[in-house]
Nucleic acid binder design. Structure first.
Length: 693
DNA sequence: ACTTCCTAC
């Protein structure tokens, strides 16, 4: 076993902590009871404070400043305040700070308003979907998701109200962050007075800086030019994370679930108190590990473990359990997907067990299918996972792979989402912003030409772009205006023609959230029975309408949801999205109209958006084998669909989830003649006829 | 016989 010190951190402060993590948690986390003066002192104790002058100098003199900030440096909360204190928000200008996640936007904004002693929504505000807590006249620092900032560009392409835009967590390389970075680089050329602050982890800093380097060979002239230097500056700010000692497996591990379980047992046996966080890949792994841990007689005998699962599909109340205090004398073990890598932060973790894998999405432009596969994580992820053990005190990380593997075989960072995704939404957003040459766009990470061409083909077949790849009018502009996937947006537009916009908007809202069903481990049967009460012979989309109707008729009762295994929180969200979409539809001139149960009209509207996802049951198929019309891919109806084992001859799916087989999720039955009606250009008559026999 | 994780006037 070898040791590993986290680079860039000081020697560990050794802390004698017989009491476990809880004590530290309470002593560090409660800032709200301090007065204003001591908030000021707290701010000055943050590592980033030492760099205040340097940061302001660099932002003043460089168009782009890349800040490398380890977690706990305070960069996100402090830099916007420094900028404001230095006058960047004077003269009606604003400072923007983007985050990839809604939750982060809310918590950072409220923290900063607290530090500044102002009411949230006044000088400091935030905007996320459905929540605009800003006041145009007084808000000077605005936190927002990068998706919202992209949407803002549709009205204000140069983002002219902002003097500085800070893009936080840029190293995560999310789809919308990368689109945003590409567009900001373009804006910079038109607005030399604009300043960018890109915050990134060490590993991506150089590539961020070189992406924003506009100076090229003109460095000599550059110094004589007025205005900021075009060459980006890089500044590193150390974090306040504690050291994490890392151990590797001596031999490659044949079964990481078993290895994770035995590692947890030996930590429990040999190490001082402190909570354990285990990273596995998905629900199945997690449940298997929990079962093994609770069945392990030796561990159970000691009765010392408090084991909790954590993944996004888990009901909220179960997720919240991981934040509950560890019972005295027990050790909390959270077994999690990578939701705990970035989205959720557990304080007080002393030990991390990292299996070295995660589920990752890969897109195949040839088949237009996104696959979900278990793949090795990157060094960057491994470091991030390890860091989860050192938030409040020094910790330990056990990697279930060899050091040799880490050093020589693990890739430095993951593949950007841009290169692993279907790009229809991304392309239409750029089109709407007037970017004509999509293939020539200066991306932070270029997607494959195949994926771009596929996206253009899909948009063309939807009638959203024309022969010159320009947005069509009005359909193209309307689809771009709806904040959903273009296929869904097209379905909403078509619902106007079929007189079923109310129903289709409900369906679009349900499809926008993860699941409307409340699924608990062990009650699968009850859930299946509940589904049967709403099941429609036409398929899942119509089933959603039945559920929504029942929910409304119950007076939006949470009790009704509980009885029917419907997720109440999800239904509230459906309602919110539905209201938003109704407003947008009205603005676009779509008449809000119900078809009063005419499910043919509803399915025709769905077909108008999703004709490309048509499948036909294979003749003589006994196991429900379908093939897609477009590319003859072999697919099956997902077991969660109401049409599972019903197997109608012709179906359309909303999406494919690819595990051991390709499963169609959310399926409706259709009449094949609707395909030629919806997209004559896409389905040549002979193509369907030749397959109809 | 099954669900990594996010976001969007």
């Amino acid at each position: 076993m070898s040791r590993f010190w986290k680079p860039g951190t000081e020697k560990p402060v050794l802390v004698d902590d017989e009491e476990g993590g809880v004590l530290f948690y309470s002593s560090l986390s409660s800032s709200s009871r301090y007065g204003h003066a001591s908030i000021e002192k707290q701010r000055q104790r943050l590592p980033v404070y030492k760099y205040r002058t340097s940061i302001l100098y660099l932002v003043e003199n460089h168009a782009t400043t890349v800040i490398v900030g380890e977690t706990g440096s305070g960069k996100t909360t402090q830099i916007p305040q420094y900028l404001k204190e230095a006058g960047w928000a004077e003269g009606g200008r604003m400072i923007a700070c983007t985050q990839p996640r809604r939750l982060a936007v809310q918590s950072v904004a409220s923290r900063v308003s607290e530090e500044m002693g102002v009411k949230l929504g006044e000088e400091v505000g935030y905007t996320i979907r459905f929540e605009d807590i800003t006041n145009a006249d007084v808000t000077r620092i605005k936190f927002l998701t990068d998706g919202v900032l992209l949407r803002e560009m549709m009205d204000d392409p140069l983002l002219s109200k902002y003097s500085v835009i800070m893009v936080d967590e840029a190293h995560e390389r999310s789809l919308s962050t990368d689109i945003l970075l590409g567009l900001l680089k373009k804006i910079q050329r038109r607005r030399p007075e604009l300043r960018l602050v890109i915050s990134s982890a060490t590993i991506e800093a150089e590539s961020m800086a070189s992406f924003f380097n506009n100076s090229r060979k003109r460095q000599e002239r550059d110094t004589e030019e007025l205005g900021p230097k075009k060459e980006p500056a890089i500044l590193s700010v150390e974090g306040r994370g504690f050291n994490v000692q890392t151990f590797y497996s001596e031999e490659p591990v044949p079964d990481y679930i078993r290895a994770a379980v035995s590692t947890v047992s030996s930590i429990h046996d040999e190490e001082p108190m402190g909570d354990i966080l285990v990273f596995l890949t998905g629900q199945d792994d997690i449940e298997a590990a929990i079962q093994m841990l609770t069945e392990d007689s030796e561990v159970t005998r000691k009765q010392g473990l408090f084991v909790l699962p954590l993944y996004s599909g888990l009901p909220r109340s179960d997720q919240d359990l991981v934040f509950s205090p560890t019972p005295r004398g027990k050790r909390k073990v959270v077994i999690s997907t990578n939701i705990a890598e970035t989205s959720l932060t557990l304080e007080g973790i002393a030990y991390v067990v990292d299996c070295g894998f995660s589920k990752q999405r890969f897109y195949n432009p040839m088949t237009d299918i996104e696959n979900l596969v278990v793949a090795p994580i990157s060094k960057a992820s491994a470091r991030q996972r390890a860091g989860r053990a050192g938030r409040l005190r020094p910790g330990k990380c056990y990697r279930l792979y060899t050091e040799e593997y880490y050093l020589n075989e693990m890739s430095a960072h993951g593949i950007p989402e841009m290169q692993r995704s279907n790009l229809v939404s991304c392309v239409i957003q750029l089109k709407a912003l007037g970017i004509d040459n999509i293939l020539g766009f200066d991306w932070p990470a270029s997607p494959s030409p195949e994926a771009l061409i596929r996206a253009l083909e899909v948009l063309y077949s939807l009638g959203v772009i024309d022969d010159d790849a320009k947005l069509t009018s009005p359909a193209g502009f309307q689809v771009a205006e709806i904040p959903l996937d273009p296929m869904i947006s097209k379905m909403i537009l078509a619902s106007n023609d079929y007189g079923c916009s109310e129903e289709v908007i409900t369906i679009a809202s349900v499809l926008s959230i993860q699941s409307i069903w409340f699924s608990v481990r062990g009650s699968q049967k009850e859930l299946d029975e509940a589904k049967l009460r709403f099941a429609a012979a036409e398929g899942d989309h119509v089933t959603f309408l039945n559920v929504y109707k029942g929910f409304i008729e119950s007076g939006k009762s949470s009790n009704w949801c509980h009885k029917n295994h419907v997720n109440y929180q999800a239904m509230k969200k459906v309602q919110e999205i539905r209201q938003q979409l109704r407003r947008i539809a009205q603005r676009l001139g779509i008449a809000l109209k119900s078809c009063e149960g005419d499910t043919r009209a509803v399915r025709k509207a769905i077909t108008a958006g999703f004709f490309a996802n048509a499948c036909r049951l294979e003749a003589f198929s006994h196991n429900g084998l379908y093939k897609t019309i477009r590319s003859s891919q072999e697919v099956y109806i997902h077991p969660s669909s109401v049409l599972f084992r019903v197997n109608p001859k012709w179906v359309i799916f909303h999406s494919i989830v690819s595990t051991d087989r390709q499963y169609m999720r959310n399926v409706i039955s259709i009449d094949p003649s609707w395909l030629t009606e919806a997209a004559p250009h896409f389905y040549q008559n002979q193509q369907l006829k030749s397959r109809a026999q």
